[in-house]
Design a binder for these strands. Structure first.
Lengths: 357, 357
DNA sequence: CGGTTGATTGAAAACGCTTTCTATGGTAAT
DNA sequence: ATTACCATAGAAAGCGTTTTCAATCAACCG
């Protein structure tokens, strides 16, 4: 890979060997070797204008021979584009986010854009910095998953670049939001229990508090409530406990639920993680699932299929959402129309719910 | 935030308003506003040379007033540095990786470097592209978690920039590798079972095949074998099954193990995911844990504490490894000495192992 | 008091690419 | 054969920083 064109030799002589020459082949080197100007080289790579086939080929050959890789910094500086889209999540480690990322990677796969990942770890300050990192890198588009930023900031961002917001609805901004219909999913989960003959159905919710920007917990809860109402059942406050989506809180919640002494035969838990905690709590008390209590979760985490017993749950189409988001960003980038559907979740029937009649 | 210095007004008049002026404040604008040259502004931000306090302050004020953010592309181009370190994992979604990422984020937190994440999804081709993305962005350092690249390539990379490799040992390159002592961990897991009175201990390994660059499975297995040997027990091939680290393979493995008909009272599984599969297999057969079979896993995934029963397992100090890796990179970047210890894993005792005497 | 020295500062040259703007040649039209 | 027009290329001007080089100024030395 030792090039001996003028430029390279000049580099060698000036002692730049170990830096420029060895380290980075530039458009200069290619131009020299192919016997054309750098403008032409640039044109070839961007096919931004007609270049005679012979030169084109020469450039391609030179580039291949020298293993040329454009300097993104230079490109970005000159063109004002970074050819990357920023992806901000809250927790790389969760199955739902992981699925989304997978979808995004796939969706961006044969575009010229590369994803740039950052993670907020559910902490506003970290999220802010992560976002800043992305912005500093001048991403051309942004996919935000469950962002906790203010609606104003989000709208402001949208002014400057294509954006897609997953798992959160920002008022007056629905066009850019991609969500799952949590209400419907909650409704259906509850309905499923009702249909199996259960009438006393408890619910452990996610984080509900007012200030919360993310409405998933509230929507699932509303679905639960309405499903009950629709069959003439009054939701019983004693059968409802607020959790915080974490495993531990499921354990706690089932304790308080049980301690209230109100009987129930089925339990709808707002996510699988908490369901996992619930399951342990039940096990500790010697309460069997599904014989004594039917259990239904939400999310279909990978290990839910391996719970004892395998958990009936609601699956969000994470991967599909990721690729839809990617596609939408790409379209926005191309000034093409796009639309983000409200996704619907799927009931995954396994073994944690038994019918009683 | 409307600036009326010469530069900005000029921008306004030339109609650059909606792009340059609104979009990006440059060092130019600051210089103008603070009444100094751009060189001085640059010096202030990098405190690369003495600048009189009065000017320094003026620059800072101007920067604050205009909400200046340096253009990383320009900085990168000019300085040859990107002030970022690339982090390549195999699967954002796994708890182990997630812990590492958390550690890295924390470790880089008060440095000037920002992490840039990419994920190989356990597929060599994707990993290659992800790495390329990182390289193209001219990261100043690289943290690779369980990379599958050839040793040659890794060494080559190390020539060019600081590097830390987690979870893989590259021969003759140990200085840059940060690993957990899997052999010791495997040994201790087995020893624990032995100490509880178990003599017929089965083992489900991870991916073992020769070509495999990652040795974790083989090391855990070797630890298992030697622990047995050390108490005078001959490892029984009929009690050993090779899995592939995935949940499903745990289920399969326990089936074949059981079908061989050789009795065993305890089972060491090379990771928690497979243990999860095993658990389900056992449940299906009505075999109780820990009463009929003692179970011990590896990794301490978050949900392992909530398995039925809670799983005794080995915890790798993921988060700590992440921050150690970050620190090592930072030190290399500063030309300071660094060293990567071999981490040792911790036995987490829960309820899936019962003593038999 | 002229010349040094050191601390500050500005001018200008990179950095590697994109993108006008111009120039060149050839081809089609008159 | 002229003129007009295209297609193709090169020159050169940025893009927003850093960094080298040179210049200015004041305090300091003998």
């Amino acid at each position: 890979m030792q090039c001996l064109c003028e430029t390279c030799v000049a580099d060698l002589n000036t002692g730049k060997t170990m830096t420029t020459q060895q380290k980075h082949v530039t458009i200069q080197h290619i131009a020299e070797r192919a016997g054309v100007s750098i403008s032409t080289v640039s044109r070839v790579f961007n096919d931004s204008a007609g270049v005679k086939e012979s030169k084109r080929q020469a450039v391609m050959d030179a580039a291949a021979a020298l293993d040329y890789r454009p300097n993104l910094f230079a490109q970005g500086l000159a063109s004002g584009q970074s050819m990357s889209v920023g992806v901000l999540t809250q927790n790389f480690g969760s199955a739902f986010y992981d699925g989304i990322l997978r979808g995004i990677i796939a969706g961006l796969d044969n575009s010229n854009y590369a994803p740039l990942f950052a993670d907020g770890r559910w902490r506003l300050d970290i999220e802010e910095r992560a976002l800043q990192t992305l912005l500093d890198r001048r991403v051309d588009g942004l996919i935000l998953v469950g962002p906790q930023q203010s609606a104003d900031l989000l709208k402001q961002l949208a002014q400057k670049m294509p954006i897609v917001i997953i798992s959160r609805i920002v008022e007056g901004f629905e066009k850019f939001c991609l969500t799952v219909d949590n209400y419907d999913a909650g409704y259906r989960a509850t309905k499923y229990l009702l249909d199996r003959g259960h009438h006393q159905i408890a619910h452990i919710t996610g984080v509900l508090s007012e200030s919360r920007v993310l409405r998933d917990a509230a929507d699932r809860f509303a679905g639960y409530r309405d499903a009950l109402l629709d069959v003439g059942l009054e939701p019983d406050p004693d059968l409802i406990v607020e959790g915080n989506f974490r495993t531990q809180s499921g354990l706690l919640a089932i304790e308080t639920l049980l301690s209230r002494g109100r009987p129930f035969s089925a339990l709808f838990v707002a996510n699988d993680q908490m369901a996992s905690g619930v399951r342990l709590g039940l096990y500790r008390r010697g309460i069997r699932v599904p014989d004594d209590i039917a259990l239904i979760g939400f999310d279909d985490q990978p290990h839910s299929a391996y719970m004892i017993p395998p958990l009936t749950t609601i699956r969000q189409p994470a991967e599909e959402m990721g690729s839809i988001a990617a596609e939408a960003i790409l379209n926005q980038l191309d000034d093409k129309p796009f639309s983000l559907p409200t996704m619907s979740a799927e009931l995954i029937i396994r073994e944690s719910v038994k019918s009683i009649y």
